[in-house]
Design a protein around this nucleic acid. Structure first.
Length: 549
RNA sequence: GGCGGCGUAGCUCAGUCGGUGAGAGCGCUCGACUCAUAAUCGAGAGGUCGGCGGUUCGAGUCCGCCCGCCGCUACCA
């Protein structure tokens, strides 16, 4: 192992406008945690950041519904979301929000630099305007009759009845959601990001990426090949980050559009983390060091923003690292329906976290990470994964081995006699499993990585059945077999740790070891005979389906 | 409508550059074992690889058309 690598793990910023569900967990939040934990164990310098997205129309819509301010909406859901991460051990180095002064300053810095570099220009467009409220209306604030299905409460961006995408001007008899007034078209001036200026550079860059998921790379390239158009980065709104004062010259009531500003959160959060560490320059090791690697974990709906537009912003700013990879996931669906906040399908992460052990939930979700396809999940499947795979194969393996140590060897790691070829083969097989799992995780094939460790756990079960230490016809041989099994488990503990951090740590202590499970790095360390193990308790409990009703 | 991805065993999924009989886990059937959370191990059954057509000595894999699901389509981000 050489010098530590610098690994920046950027995680999609959830809207603080509602609860998150298991689809979010499996699509965007658990994968980066597994990835980050692995890299930390290897000895790399990981910085994993994200936060709640405080701006955007969904927040103001929610605030209107609840009759509270947007900031209150953000605070409420931010607290709930932070609670998920604590319960499930999603190990952010910083999980902040986009409401901070720091984020505003960093956003302004990027805005100013892009403007100075000629990548931000002004332009005009026509937008619906509510003459009674005297304000411009976002598409979602315009209602009317759907031209396709006749539904009379279609939103300006989409019809909830027939699902068609709409343009507000297509609505029949449009009206303002705020006052009910008939909106009028009015010219408005905005700043535009000159994406067109990056067309060739970004395509060249995208085409030369290696190791990216097919759907991510093709999606991004396809988007660029259609021709990048300049895109407005300001809105006529009152909720959002204001323009830098000296550039706030294009009319009243302008705010920076949330898509431009939210992705900057990766940079601003890195700076906030550094400041909190007492070393305000520390972020540079991940952003300016050309050897550093940057991974963005997002859902497939966010590919264009992270694989095209954000890289354009970074190129235009200059001197900051582009993404190494954007391992976007597909969706976890629940019985075929997309688990989405707006549809209210599926229950929140917190709901499940209250009813399941954190590692049980992490296991079930990690084993269905939607890396290539949408993956369907149900409560029955969740329970089955936990009981038939996690508890039976791994939990029971630990339990059967340690119970024998406790009962037959006075609770101490037994002394090993001369190892037979089968003993050596098992231990080297565990070591090989760790190496292969590491390769899979490096390629962000996390689901396969987990399967690889489980396979190794099965090998230990096979070994035990073949060597039957409980028969004890030859006590020294029985002790040797058990010593080998203990060491195998100690190696598997390492491989499971990124996925199952809580129970791996529990096992670490149960084996009589001090410190943290990752202290020795990504290796199987040797358990010495005579080591006193702790009280033996099952790592996991079986789950009843009725717990999830 | 356009663009991208996906469609493989009852279920959830792997299948690199097209190449001997199409894979895994779970479930199911049978058997072994009994240290362990009715856990473990072995064997077996189970598939027209969404459909049709084409290229090829050879197609799950490449090409065309069609069907279905998901995402994007620039004011959701």
């Amino acid at each position: 192992m050489g010098e530590p690598r610098y690994i920046l793990v950027g995680v999609a910023w959830p809207y603080a406008s509602g609860s998150l569900h298991l689809g979010h967990l499996g699509g965007a939040y658990l994968p980066p945690d597994v990835f980050a934990r692995y890299h930390r164990m290897v000895g790399n310098r990981v910085l994993m950041v994200s936060g709640s997205d405080a701006h955007g129309t969904p927040i103001t819509v929610k605030a209107d519904q609840l009759g509270v301010t947007p900031a209150e909406v953000v605070e409420r859901y931010h607290a709930e979301i932070v609670g998920y991460w604590e319960k499930l051990g999603i190990s952010f180095d910083l999980f902040t929000t986009t409401m901070t002064d720091n984020h505003r300053e960093v956003t302004w810095d990027m805005f100013r630099r892009l403007e100075a570099n000629g990548y931000i220009v002004t332009g005009t467009s026509e937008q619906f305007y509510d003459p009674e409220a005297e304000r411009f209306l976002p598409d979602r604030y315009v209602e009317g009759t759907c031209p396709h299905c006749g539904y009379d409460a279609a939103r300006g961006d989409q019809c909830d009845n027939c699902g068609r995408q709409l343009d507000p001007v297509d609505l029949i008899e449009p009206r303002s959601r705020i006052t009910g007034a008939t909106p009028v078209m009015k010219e408005t001036t905005h700043y535009f990001l000159r994406l067109s200026a990056f067309q060739d550079r970004i395509l060249e860059w995208l085409r030369t990426r290696e190791g990216w998921r097919r759907h991510v790379q093709n999606m991004a390239i396809g988007f660029c090949e259609e021709g990048l158009q300049d895109r407005a980065i300001t809105r006529d709104l009152t909720w959002g980050i204001p323009l830098p004062p000296e550039l706030d010259t294009i009319g009243e009531g302008k705010r920076i559009y949330v898509w431009f500003e939210a992705v900057i959160g990766y940079l601003s959060a890195s700076k906030e983390w550094a400041a909190r560490q007492g070393d305000p320059e520390a972020w540079r090791a991940w952003w300016e060091n050309p050897e550093a690697e940057t991974y963005y974990f997002i859902g497939k709906d966010n590919i264009v923003f992270h694989a095209v537009i954000w890289p354009c912003q970074l190129m235009g700013y200059g001197g900051l690292n582009l993404p190494t990879n954007v391992p976007a996931n597909q969706y976890i669906t629940f019985k075929g329906a997309k688990a989405s906040k707006s549809m209210g399908v599926g229950r929140s992460i917190g709901w499940y976290a209250e009813r399941l052990q954190p590692d049980a939930l992490r296991y079930a979700i990690a084993s269905v990470f939607p890396e290539q396809n949408d993956t369907d999940l149900s409560d029955e499947e969740l329970v089955r994964r936990i009981n038939e795979e996690l508890v039976s194969t791994w939990g029971n393996l630990v339990n059967r081995v340690l119970t024998m140590v406790a009962k037959n060897h006075g609770g101490r790691i037994p002394a090993s006699g001369v190892l037979q070829p089968g003993d050596v083969a098992l231990l080297s097989s565990i070591d090989r499993a760790l190496e292969e799992e590491a390769e899979l995780i490096e390629r962000v094939e996390l689901r396969a990585g987990l399967r690889r460790v489980m396979e190794a756990a099965t090998e230990v079960n096979v070994y035990l059945n073949a060597n039957a230490p409980w028969k004890a016809e030859d006590p020294e041989r029985a002790a040797t077999v058990l010593w080998v099994a203990c060491n195998a488990i100690n190696g598997l503990k390492v491989g499971f740790a990124p996925y199952l951090p809580f129970s791996s740590q529990t096992l670490h202590r149960m084996l009589g070891l001090q410190g943290e499970v990752g202290d020795d790095g990504w290796v199987r360390s040797r358990l010495e005979p005579g080591l006193e193990i702790g009280p033996v308790e099952p790592l996991f409990e079986k789950v009843e389906l009725s717990q999830l009703t």
